[in-house]
Design a protein around this nucleic acid. Sequence first.
DNA 1: GTCGCATATTTTGTATACAACATCGCCTCG
DNA 2: CGAGGCGATGTTGTATACAAAATATGCGAC
Lengths: 231, 231
Amino acid sequence: MKSESSTVIVAARIRTDIISGVLPPRSKLGEAALAKQYSVSRIPVREALRSLEAEGLVESRPYSGSVVAPSPIEDAEDLFEIRIVLEAATVRRAARRSAAQSCEGSPDPGWWPIRKEINEILAAGDEVIAEERFEDLAVLNMRFHFAIAELSGSLSLVSLLRQISGKIEWLYSLNVTRRGPQAWPEHREIIAAVDAGQRDKASDLMASHVRRSRDSYFAMMSEQRPEDPAS
Amino acid sequence: MKSESSTVIVAARIRTDIISGVLPPRSKLGEAALAKQYSVSRIPVREALRSLEAEGLVESRPYSGSVVAPSPIEDAEDLFEIRIVLEAATVRRAARRSAAQSCEGSPDPGWWPIRKEINEILAAGDEVIAEERFEDLAVLNMRFHFAIAELSGSLSLVSLLRQISGKIEWLYSLNVTRRGPQAWPEHREIIAAVDAGQRDKASDLMASHVRRSRDSYFAMMSEQRPEDPAS
DNA sequence: GTCGCATATTTTGTATACAACATCGCCTCG
DNA sequence: CGAGGCGATGTTGTATACAAAATATGCGAC
């Protein structure tokens, strides 16, 4: 396994704490406190905070420190809308790359490791479903979508997806449960279309997949809070 | 004027150099060199690089340093597609907020400064057009779109727009000219719809505006390079 | 008792210094 | 002559130390 720098580890842990709700919006993120908590100096903490700031999870003002950004819950609809377009684009490019590779004899060295990983993710998901450990499905789901994005070969789309996914995960943290295992088999249809190089089909399937995810989210929200969440 | 930290200044300058093509993709970004260039220590440089990494403009590997990310030119269509949805969303929220503020007596302290700034931007654009200094229009155009996003009051959408806009500016850097001044008056129609609280109209106008921008980009591209840019 | 101001304390911003790791060149061995 | 190991060199990662700014504290005046 490749070892990561402290900065990346600290950023990941703070991100998790924000997204999971351990650190609620407007929480003060004191550098000294975080440094002590993670047993590092302030330098990696500061760099992590800069990353999170660029991701829109943290707000910073000079000489005033960093606080957790307001929750993106007001933007839920817009974020899903954007995610539909974005993920449809990633999977389309993935299918395109798949087709280009099958027809011509282009090497594409980065393709198969990721393609292999997707199979592992799908298998792990099936196992998790069989054992009814549904709480592990969320992270596998995210890994699947990121793997598809990497399959697209486009760094810009991956970094955009990272930003949007973070926010959408954050939305879900306000609820407890997730969309159940009935969504999982859809992943296989998507990757099948990618493998077949069917761009339009892959794109449409992904868009529908994300749309259902969105509808499930809003259904959940209206169950828990019958009143309109806006303001 | 509010003073910024060195980190922010350095990040802005590196970002400009990347987007403008001074630093081509795959350029090595040595920390010591950048520190000397901007007369600061390596700490602000490192923090700036972390921000740019989160924005997808820079790639970093542990103990191996940072390089400029590959150009997003392959993703041009997808980026425009996402931007259409994103900006339609920001302007819709701006119109919504405008309407909410007009009807009720809600304070909304942050509204008027930005609304004022938009007027200044529009006036500056008119002046620039009158004097035919069209090269200054690009930065004003960007400022207009960011101001609209801020008017939406949504930090998540602003940070997404920052990321996408950066990449789209990067696309344009490969050409020299921009979409001419005939697009500028469209901004006034958009802000008029916002002020009137007409969400759908504002959203549709913005979507069309960005679509025309996209079409102009691709027309320019096909002029300069008749062959298909995709591989 | 409250407001305002000066000072003290805390926190952030930056520079310097050192440790860990990668890379390149050279030397030895096959 | 080429391949692999080994050290020199340079770059990145992190810690400590200090400077600058904001916030908190306490005193005095009204």
